[in-house]
């Protein structure tokens, strides 16, 4: 194990670890507000390491959805990770073996993926393990802190903290929507669809998990047909 590479990885991952801590704090507070225990909230973060997927999963647990819905929802929401894993696999080359890949796959999140791909030097196993360490600790520790704070804070402050997660989602989608018109259109489509599912009485029968899946698949498929991405965007 090359400690130098591991340390470089830790250093690169530090800002992501701090960011994850603050955002997962919101997830912890929200999980408590919806009736989960601090232990269960922390367990979800420690085993999943994904914001949108966990959030949808929490909605399904609270609504007591079926396991089939859970699988479908995670497949659709987290499908982007398969694309990232494919890109990361290309970037890692043949030198990195099967066992390290099993570990690295666990923490291939949007931000860690972006940092790994942005590295100029070749990717090594110690670097990647170092890169994942602080984000995992930050995400899990932040959830625990948020859950504990959520257990003692009054209800109105809990609800306010729960909004942090929505704030993060908005901060992720708005900047690219400004730059890419198709992204803006896919969002408007998804927004109209999810409003229909929430407000049209006949569509309210559709469960929370399935409606997220349908909104995502329909909006993304329509925009993929109307605005196929250029080839250079795929290289990233």
């Amino acid at each position: 194990m090359k400690w130098n590479e591991f340390k470089k990885g830790i250093h690169t991952g530090l800002p992501v670890g701090l960011g994850y801590f603050s955002v997962s704090f919101g997830f912890g507070a929200m999980a408590i507000a919806q009736g989960l225990s601090a232990f269960h909230a922390t367990l979800i973060s420690a085993t999943n390491l994904t914001s949108a997927g966990q959030f949808a999963g929490l909605t399904l647990i609270v609504a007591m959805g079926t396991l089939w819905e859970m699988v479908m929802t995670q497949l659709v929401i987290n499908s982007r990770y398969s694309l990232m894993s494919i890109a990361l696999a290309q970037r890692m080359g043949e030198k990195i073996g099967f066992l390290p890949r099993l570990l690295i796959a666990f923490f291939n999140t949007d931000e860690i993926f972006a940092l790994a791909m942005a590295r100029r030097e070749p990717l090594t196993v110690p670097f990647l393990l170092g890169l994942g360490t602080l984000p995992i600790l930050g995400w899990t520790g932040g959830t625990l802190m948020g859950a504990l704070a959520g257990s003692v804070l009054p209800t109105d402050i809990r609800a306010a903290l729960g909004v942090m997660l929505y704030g993060m989602f908005i901060a992720i989608v708005i900047p690219p929507a400004r730059q890419e018109k198709p992204v803006c259109i896919v969002m408007i489509l998804a927004l109209i669809l999810s409003s229909l599912f929430a407000w049209i009485p006949a569509l309210q029968q559709v469960s929370a998990g399935i409606s997220i899946v349908l909104c995502t698949v329909i909006a993304a498929a329509v925009c993929a047909l109307l605005f196929p991405i250029r080839d250079e965007e795929v290289a990233e």
């Binding site: 989608v173 690219p176 998804a190 909104c215």
Partner: peptide
Amino acid sequence: YVPYACLTAM
């Protein structure tokens, strides 16, 4: 497009 559609819908 999936991440944008999904985060918006949620």
